[in-house]
Design a protein around this nucleic acid. Structure first.
Lengths: 114, 114
DNA sequence: CTTTCACGCAACTGGTTGGTTGCACATCAC
DNA sequence: GTGATGTGCAACCAACCAGTTGCGTGAAAG
């Protein structure tokens, strides 16, 4: 379970903004989004296609327009993956701590994790 | 605070594996890593440089070799960003729930978030 | 029926990137 | 000093990607 595809979908800043707009501003179409962005409709449509392929967005065709909605599922998987990596790292640190000090077993303090 | 740079660093599967190897296997050099991978040492070195630029890895020069260590800090920021986006989405859903049903205010059930 | 609007598809372009090979430099071992 | 080992730098290549323009199509509006 390695969501490098999701990471790739979030790698582009423009695409990231498209996603955050959908998340905070609600469902929208490609033309609506492109109206308040410095790129063309087709560029936005491509980004939406990429986000859709990554499962971060859902298509809702209605008549002649297509409305896109934010889909948080993959983000949850992503957080899970990150936490998993962090845990293996913690276990490594703990093992090292036990190796270098036979008593107490306190692992070194670490920043960045709640 | 938009860590699209961190996302970009994690976008490539090969680079992702380099990072996970450092996280689970402990510190290593570029040549050590490349020994058990299907790419050359220079390719690994490039990936390590990218990870270093993103703050996901730390260089530790020792004599003629350079040992790299995993750095979990940026991953924490990343999780924070994801949770922030998820929260704004939750607030949106709650607002909509209140609009469509005046009593109870129960927001729709949602998968993927703990 | 004609016009307008929203979308999709295809082709093209400039820039980025993952990967390679080749070489030069510094450090350790002898 | 000489040779082996580990890095870094530069050049190069193929593939990919974000973005554009142009055109065709199908649904709403008149």
């Amino acid at each position: 379970m390695v969501p490098s595809e999701v990471f790739a979908a979030l790698a582009d800043p423009t695409r990231l903004e498209v996603l955050t707009r959908l998340a905070s501003g609600g469902p929208a179409t490609a033309t609506e989004l492109s109206a308040s962005m410095p790129i063309t409709r087709q560029a936005v449509a491509k980004h939406l296609a990429a986000l859709d392929a990554a499962g971060l967005v859902e298509r809702h065709p209605a008549g002649r327009e297509v409305r896109y909605t934010f889909e948080p599922g993959p983000l949850g998987d992503l957080v899970k993956w990150v936490e998993n990596v962090g845990d293996t790292w913690d276990r490594r640190l703990e093992r090292l701590g036990r190796t270098f000090s036979t008593r107490g077993g306190g692992s070194p303090a670490r920043a960045g994790r709640r």
